[in-house]
Amino acid sequence: MPTRLCLNGVSKNFVMHLQGGAVLPVVAEVELAVAAGECVVLGGRSGIGKSSVLKMIYGNYRCEEGQILITDGDRIVNVATASPREILALRKETIGYVSQFLRAIPRVSARDIVAEPLIERGVERDDAVSRAEDMLARLNVPEKLWGLPPATFSGGEQQRVNIARGFIADFPILLLDEPTASLDAANRAVVVDLVKEKKASGAALLGILHDADVRERIADRVIDMEAFAAEKAA
């Protein structure tokens, strides 16, 4: 299967100017590749920089060194040097991101939040909304909540809304940042199914999963981030 995502020599430091310019190394010389139809999981202790790698791929964190190559249709884009406009285009068409935390927008209903990625990609509104409702139902979000803004939902409900939003569109590359944390067994199983469907459809998935059981069921490979630790464990 073709490679969709490839990191070459990616390093990241935070410079904390408010603490006298202290340099906080995050990761160094990260090398990894994810092929279509594959689910790769980043492993390693917390604080090792797994989330930072996902955020760099999504363009949320800047990448100072190395290349982050994304296959976008018939061209290859280096996120590390891409213009903001190119990154926005990648986020619209190519890279999806499922995070743990939902950034609720005032007054926008759960149904609309989930449907939004489809509408942005040109799906008819009615169609997008009905698919959003199917997804919410699948993740056991009670129907009476669909029309409400998720700001007041419980943590688990918000997370499921966010998962629904992350999985609804067919992104060729999907980044999973702890999608199953604090989900019950039934909903974890739904996520496992969703990931399997994405793999079957040829998406490349890169994720962080602490839940060993879920990891076991979906990961094709686990990459130990310890190898790229900026400061080797003492």
Binding site: L18, G59, Y61
Partner: peptide
């Protein structure tokens, strides 16, 4: 300058870090 979430989540300049914090 940069993507909004990039500047807010990974601010580089000392002043931006101060603003965000």
């Amino acid at each position: 300058t940069g993507l909004t979430d990039q500047v807010l989540d990974d601010p580089r300049a000392p002043y931006t870090q101060l603003l965000v914090s």
